[in-house]
Design a protein around this nucleic acid. Sequence first.
DNA 1: TTCCAGGCGTATC
DNA 2: GATACGCATGGA
Length: 266
Amino acid sequence: MQYKIDKNDILLRQSDFALDDTLDCGQAFRWEKISDNAYQGAFLNKKLTISCENGADLFRLHDTSEQDFLTVWKDYFDLDTDYGEIKRRLCADETLSKACAYAGGIRILRQDSWEALSSFIISQNNNIPRIKGIIGRLCEHYGGYPSAEQMRDETVDSLGYLRSGFRAKYLVDAVSKVLSGELELESIRTLSLDEARNKLMTIKGVGPKVADCALLFGFYRIDAFPKDVWVKRVLSQWYPHGLPECTKGLEGIAQQYLFHYIRSQK
DNA sequence: TTCCAGGCGTATC
DNA sequence: GATACGCATGGA
């Protein structure tokens, strides 16, 4: 990673990074494509427009101070992780080699844990455009993604404008468990993967898949391996006997390449 | 009209 | 523990 300041922007040179792959792959739902090579979105209600300058490895973070870049965006975009090295390991497997060639611009975003958890509660048995719609209405209502604290008084009825269907009661339960301290999100980080999953699954509407997505995308647990309908197809088509050895410890990253790859095979 | 979408809770065996 | 079914909503 190299960067320099250009007036009000940060110019970033970064390999193994593509905006479409990373921001429109179903790991985050608040990034909007505003032109061929630019996205607008936010992390913890700090807004950002990011564009790709040369169709390759040069990016512009618009209206961004060096301090915000170093303390917020560098971490959010996981810029200190060497995805080239990760892909070299995964490419020991033939299918993963193809998946990396197809979707090698994905990086795992280090998202906010509450936002990831609640977003993936909304995601269940739902499609990506509608997930974005529901989260968009939520953020419009609050002027940004609401914390659990901000959602303290929400009920199934008060959330009706989201048109989130049966998922509203699950959001209410998540808010309640987080605010009561029954579920401390920060302490999740100290637990083993199994313990963390089981803890998250005490929330109504959080099963194995939503828990794994929350862990992978909200807690950067890259050894979590969410099994959705697409990944189940991946497993039955290519890995009927389980994941290859080279994915050990990187299951979540492998999952992202494979998820994106099989969705292109329609 | 019917089917499906980054699943889960519940009932039943 | 495995399997079947309903669930809100909206686009194809």
